[in-house]
């Protein structure tokens, strides 16, 4: 109980800190690296929650594939220093106030309002393993799984079309 708690608190602190780092850092590269750290922390949290397959997929897909793609794009476009000053004076203030309000609402729901959450039972053996996930994925969710492949194909084609070289014709 207590080691779990300590581990969670540590992980939570790292996750929030890295997220804030992502949010606040000047450079896009630092933001990306902060985000990688955040994703890794969250992956450990997944393990903690009995989802080893998802945790590994998280590291592979997010930290491995997506964030690398981000870094490539950042390097491709160059790290741009944006102009200071915003065209929207109230934007930042309103956003922070709304965010705090959302957090307050969440806190109210979770901690103050009496909630009847079911007692968490210990994890069964084999819960969340690749075998179990594969079992349910290829039986119950076969059709969405196949549709996912189409989705990925479309995304690939869309990316190629969007970034592909245009004919000079569009200049006109």
């Amino acid at each position: 109980m207590i080691p779990d708690m300590i581990l969670f608190i540590l992980l939570a602190i790292v996750a929030v800190t890295s997220a804030l780092g992502m949010l606040l850092s000047r450079s896009a590269v630092y933001s990306a690296l902060n985000l990688v750290l955040n994703f890794g922390t969250v992956a450990v949290l997944y393990l903690l929650l009995g989802a080893p397959f998802i945790a590994l997929a998280q590291i592979t897909v997010y930290a491995g594939a997506i964030m690398v793609l981000f870094l490539f794009v950042i390097m491709l476009l160059g790290v741009e220093q944006l102009r200071k000053g915003s065209a929207l004076p109230w934007q930042q203030t309103l956003a922070i106030i709304s965010g705090l309000l959302l957090l307050a609402l969440t806190a109210y729901v979770i901690f103050i309002r009496p909630m009847t959450l079911p007692q968490v039972s210990p994890t069964q053996l084999g819960f969340g393993t690749p075998g179990a996930i594969g079992e349910i994925l290829f039986n119950k969710y076969l059709l969405p799984f196949e549709v996912t492949s189409v989705l990925l194909l479309v995304a690939m084609i869309g990316a190629i079309v969007l970034t592909g070289k245009r004919e000079p014709k569009t200049k006109t």
Partner: peptide, 8 residues
């Protein structure tokens, strides 16, 4: 979906 979204 996130992977696809990131690509696009």
């Amino acid at each position: 979906v996130a992977a696809a979204e990131v690509a696009v």
